[in-house]
Nucleic acid binder design. Sequence first.
DNA 1: CGAGGGTTTGAAGTGCATCAAATAGTGTGG
DNA 2: CCACACTATTTGATGCACTTCAAACCCTCG
Lengths: 246, 246
Amino acid sequence: MTHKSNPSEIKTYLKTISIFKDCSDSFLAKISANAQCQIHKKGKILFVHDDTIERFYIIKSGWVKLFRETLDGAQAVVDILDNHHVLGEIAIFENNIVPYSAEVVSNAEIISLPLANLKKEIKNDNQLALNMLKSMAHDRRRKDKEIEHRTIQNAPQRIGCFLLRLIDQNQKGPVTIHLPYDKTLVAARLGMQPETFSRALSKLRDETGIRINGATIEMESLDQIVRYSCAACSSNFPCQDLKTTS
Amino acid sequence: MTHKSNPSEIKTYLKTISIFKDCSDSFLAKISANAQCQIHKKGKILFVHDDTIERFYIIKSGWVKLFRETLDGAQAVVDILDNHHVLGEIAIFENNIVPYSAEVVSNAEIISLPLANLKKEIKNDNQLALNMLKSMAHDRRRKDKEIEHRTIQNAPQRIGCFLLRLIDQNQKGPVTIHLPYDKTLVAARLGMQPETFSRALSKLRDETGIRINGATIEMESLDQIVRYSCAACSSNFPCQDLKTTS
DNA sequence: CGAGGGTTTGAAGTGCATCAAATAGTGTGG
DNA sequence: CCACACTATTTGATGCACTTCAAACCCTCG
């Protein structure tokens, strides 16, 4: 389902992506000319791990799940990304082979760009290489955090931590949160079963006094959750989520 | 305990480090001149997370544990590195603040180099930036694998997988493995308790017929372990460990 | 030889997974 | 706009994996 792919419009959007910050205009023009923008429905598989791909992707809207799975169907969610995030670009270091599968988990607008352009340009454009390096470093750090959380935090604490990272942590007073995607998916993202998620969320409610209504969660203040979740984390609150973007 | 720090000798060693491959000679000369090589004893803390550091490190021999810990002492091992690995360099993207603590876990010879040199040079030397980018990408991929393993594999399987990644996976026939460091540390590296490690290793023995003698492990062939451990992994054997180096 | 850390073993508890089934919620076609 | 089909979520019952606490054992090194 190809959408209008106006190069200049795409170019404008690309400029908002961290890895393209301050990149040469000629490169942005070139890559935009080769860009496609498509609208994908929930469930669409963009690629499967160990595929050879020719294009990488940038999310303009919606959510995409990155994952791997074993022969007998066990699945590990590597990441869940939203707009401004880039995926598949890592393949330029692996002979165009992607190390994870990507599935659209809510209707999404996604730009695709040729890997070849990127692969070539990082050798010429030091700014681009530095941007990618910085983004990659940031991302590696996020993974470290993820491993730490799964090691130290229990299920209710991980949920609390996840909720805190959805919001601006400097605000005072009451906060309302909307879960960004299905509870089942949040569960997978946090490395637990849906049933465990449901029970753990109830436990978090009992421990912290938050109010839960479907995908909406209200809290009087962040204090309770911070006390409950951040105790089992090596970072100090406010910890900010480390986003790939920014 | 400062050791002889012969710049030209250090320079030769630096050339074997992946991020310095094909870097400008003048840069290598400069950074070598500012290098120090020290011998550290087991237990030495190189830095603590959230410290501001001025130097990054390269391991010449021995092992270094990267970790974070919470106020009440819970610890998460981020990585355990040996020679040719670089640590602390990530701080150049975070205002010289390191995101993890580093502890020498076996007597080690470690080179330290000024962060400032590196920070400045990646802007001039595209090759250096690309090397770091590639290494960082590789590393991020390793973390993804780590998360996957902790999600999908149980304790005995994780140990089997760990053992396989210690060796050349293409060899046939009997293999003897020496654990590279304390069992307690292997346990922490794999995200489990020492007691669990001990029991899980016994279970792995019962399931695969390997022979265990202290830190030495013998196996008739890899097949048994592969069948047992790799079933719970999305990668195909041989999977190769993804090293920071190489 | 003795001290101390690393390792193993035992017993008991806890947290999460699993299996099963009920319930709520959502989108579809009539 | 309603009824049905299908999916997401919750709840219950049970089992297993890993942790925790405690104690014994073993190995190494001064």
